[in-house]
């Protein structure tokens, strides 16, 4: 087990190195550099700036410098916000994205699992039909359209009720959180509901459930002890990609609802060609996701004793 964990982690580190390298070279292929603004930029000024950010060195040296700094956990200084370190930017903005993501994930998992279970329970009856219709709709409308419509709906509701039921945008209180998190989690919720439904249907006809039924256990007991637990397993496997989708997919929601998360910051940084912020954010997200995948792998081993881990042969 320990060997497996170490191997997974070492492999994770290698993956992070790959992400860092890919990011570095992708960024250096971009035409133009960040030292352009509407007002005059004399050649002298540009030289001053390039020297300050080390862009005057050869690419190889820049790359080594960049890797070295990153090993020490230093992503450098933002190009556009000249007095802020990228580390500070991540430290300040990531928690926002994380809170939004976690709440979205909670809403998505609770809603998805409950929805899937309900649909499976009333298989091919009205609740199932309705839920599956909602699911198909939810994954067929682009998230930005849903987000814009949700915002419009809040405005209309506030308009009609004559008071402020929910804030339209912004960040800072619980009431700011629910709608963006719901919109963000909607696609995942639909996906999980589908997955849960089919997994439940599979479980429902297994021998152990039939045995339990034959033993005379109550519906609820069977549901909690046997069906739900086993049906959840395939859902847990999907947790890694799901978290990835939610954390990186958050930027549309963050853009529309004016939430100061890292995703929105990333889009801005791309538009302003803020090299250091782009590289820092990408590597950070990449590392974060690699870690999540490793964790989910290990978690899966813990939950399902059927999976034994020998040295990572998969």
């Amino acid at each position: 087990m320990l060997r497996y964990i170490i191997k997974r982690l070492a492999y994770g580190l290698l993956t992070i190195w790959f992400i860092a390298t890919a990011t570095f070279f992708a960024m250096h292929a971009v035409p133009g550099d960040p030292f352009n603004s509407a007002k005059a930029a004399t050649p002298q000024l540009r030289e001053n700036l390039r020297a300050r950010y080390g862009l005057d060195k050869p690419v190889g040296e820049q790359y080594l410098l960049y890797l070295g700094n990153m090993l020490q956990g230093d992503f450098g200084i933002s190009f556009t916000q000249e007095n802020r370190r990228v580390n500070d930017i991540i430290r300040e903005h990531f928690p926002v994205s994380a809170i939004l993501g976690v709440v979205a994930l909670l809403i998505a998992s609770v809603g998805g699992i409950a929805g899937g279970a309900v649909a499976a329970y009333w298989h091919n009856r009205l609740p199932d039909r309705l839920l599956m219709m909602a699911v198909v709709l939810a994954i067929s409308i682009p998230s930005f359209v849903i987000a814009a419509l949700a915002q419009l709906l809040i405005v209309q509701a506030n308009d009609l009720s004559g008071r402020s039921l929910l804030p339209v945008a912004g960040w800072g209180s619980l009431s700011h959180l629910w709608v963006p998190a719901l919109v963000l989690g909607l696609g995942t919720m639909a996906y999980l509901a589908r997955l849960m439904r089919s997994s439940m249907l599979d479980v429902m006809n297994t021998d152990y459930v039939l045995t339990a039924r034959a033993k005379g256990l109550g519906t609820w007991q069977i549901f909690w002890r046997h069906q739900l637990r086993n049906a959840l397993l395939p859902v847990v496997t999907e947790l890694g990609p799901t978290i990835a989708a939610i954390t990186t997919g958050g930027f549309v929601v963050e853009l529309i609802f004016a939430i100061p998360g890292l995703g929105r910051y990333f889009v801005q940084a791309v538009q302003q060609l803020d090299y250091t912020v782009i590289m820092g954010t990408t590597v950070f997200y990449g590392a974060f996701l690699v870690l999540i995948v490793v964790l989910v792998d290990l978690l899966y081993g813990v939950i399902d004793p059927r999976i034994r881990l020998h040295g990572g042969q998969r």
Binding site: I154, V168, G170, A258
Partner: peptide
């Protein structure tokens, strides 16, 4: 200044909402 967003629609919605 508790709201920072580039989306003009959001600013207007905030105004409508008396924020």
């Amino acid at each position: 200044l508790p709201y920072i967003t580039t989306d003009p629609g959001t600013h207007y919605n905030l105004y409508k909402d008396n924020r």
